[in-house]
Simulated scan of single mutants.
Amino acid sequence: MSLSLSSSPIHTTRHPPDPEPPMPFTRPPDTSDLTLPQRMLSASSGSILTAFVLTPFDVIRIRMQQQEIMPESKPCCSSHYQAAPAATATRNTLVANTSVLAPTESHLFWLDKDYCKNVKNCTRIDSTYQGFVTISRNEGLPTLWRGISLTLLMAIPANVIYFTGYEYIRDNSPISGSINSLLCGASARLMAATAVAPLELVKTRLQSIPSSRANPRMLSNVLAGALADVRTYGVRSLFKGLQITLWRDVPFSGIYWSLYEMCKKEFGSMFDANFDMGTHAENDSRVFATSFLSGSVAGSVAAVCTHPFDVGKTRLQISQDNSKDTKRSTMFKYLFNIYKNEGPRALFGGLGPRVIKVAPACAIMISSYEITKIFFKN
């Protein structure tokens, strides 16, 4: 018996593999995607670092601007500056021959008050490096960071209002181009500077006081003096110097943002940086370099252009003159009197430490702001 097996070929149908699901479409993120809290956190990210690193330059700047109007009899609570004979003779001649400088010198708010202790060595500050050495040696290293708490208290809300305000106005403005950046930057600074003006006044006064070593009651004394001024002259005394501060900060911001946007395009194309891309290590470093350099260049130019107003602001805020004549005096007349009686050099006192502070401050703030925005976009 034979068994024959017949088998037919088995055909297997091979189905093509399932296609991969399509990648979801993601459009490039935009600044408008950020929520208000994200913008606020982005604006606050560099405030602490900037304050700790750059506060000493603020102290030195204020001391250099203040020493030009200090009377020779009481330049440092009770000691004399060890100044060169020619400089001393020139300043004594100015006091003797002018009616503007001498009254101002007798009204420094901390003279004849219990704000500071006597200073044995009160050397005149002529450079940023000498300021570091002189203040740290004669008054103690912590003096260079005096007012850091007020700086932090002021910097965070000011930067939040400034950066978020600038981008909100810019994104909703019908104007475009460099004019838009200028106007939006000026408007944002107007709001920010007005909001923190009382804290700026107290901080400037606190940093202007020379002392042999830190006085734990110094801040309370300054606050008590400010409250006494409020009782005597009204709430407007807390905004002393605000007008000239706005003349400094509003043009500064207009110049800064206009130059920043221009430099951002140039450096951005040079480094091939994409500010609309999600977080990526290589692109993040390019964005950081672009924003850091752009902020540094824009901040330096704006600081030089507006420095005379910074000199006037410091002098007004550390003076005790609340007379009607001072209030009626216009800002330009005030600066012109400084120019006429002390020369153009007086209007640029402390320029070195201010530029050294402003350039990295702008660079750190804007680069950390841009990087944090990219983080939130992703």
Rank of each mutant, 00 (worst) to 15 (best):
L316K: 08
A289G: 03
N274S: 12
V287S: 00
V304I: 15
D272P: 00
K327M: 09
Q317S: 07
M277N: 04
S300P: 06
T279L: 13
A302G: 03
D310R: 11
A281P: 06
G312L: 09
V301S: 02
T279G: 04
P308D: 06
K313E: 06
S300K: 01
R286M: 03
S291E: 08
K327P: 00
S296K: 08
S319M: 01
T279D: 02
T326S: 10
D310Y: 13
V304P: 01
G295Q: 11
I318R: 01
A273G: 02
T290E: 04
M277A: 14
A302W: 07
K313N: 12
V311M: 05
R328M: 10
D310S: 13
V301N: 00
C305G: 03
G278K: 15
F288A: 15
V301I: 15
G312N: 03
Q317R: 10
A273F: 05
V287R: 05
G278H: 14
G312V: 08
F275A: 03
V304Y: 07
G278P: 05
G295S: 12
D325L: 12
A273D: 00
T306A: 05
N322H: 15
V297P: 00
F292K: 07
N283W: 12
E282V: 14
N322S: 09
N274Y: 05
D284C: 04
Q320A: 13
K313T: 10
G299C: 14
K324H: 10
N283G: 08
S294D: 00
H307P: 03
K313D: 03
A273Y: 06
T306C: 11
G295Y: 13
S285V: 12
T314Y: 08
G295L: 13
T314H: 06
S294W: 02
T290M: 09
K327T: 06
M277F: 08
N322Q: 09
M331H: 04
D325N: 14
D272L: 03
N274P: 01
C305F: 13
D276V: 09
F309H: 02
A298T: 08
S291T: 15
V287K: 00
S291A: 15
M277S: 11
V304K: 03
S329D: 07
D310I: 09
V311E: 02
T326Q: 13
N274A: 08
D321W: 10
Q320H: 12
N322E: 10
L316P: 00
V301T: 09
M277D: 08
K324R: 12
D276T: 15
N274L: 01
S285F: 11
F288I: 15
V297W: 02
K313Y: 11
A303S: 15
G312D: 02
S291I: 09
R286Q: 07
N322W: 15
A303R: 08
F292E: 03
M277G: 00
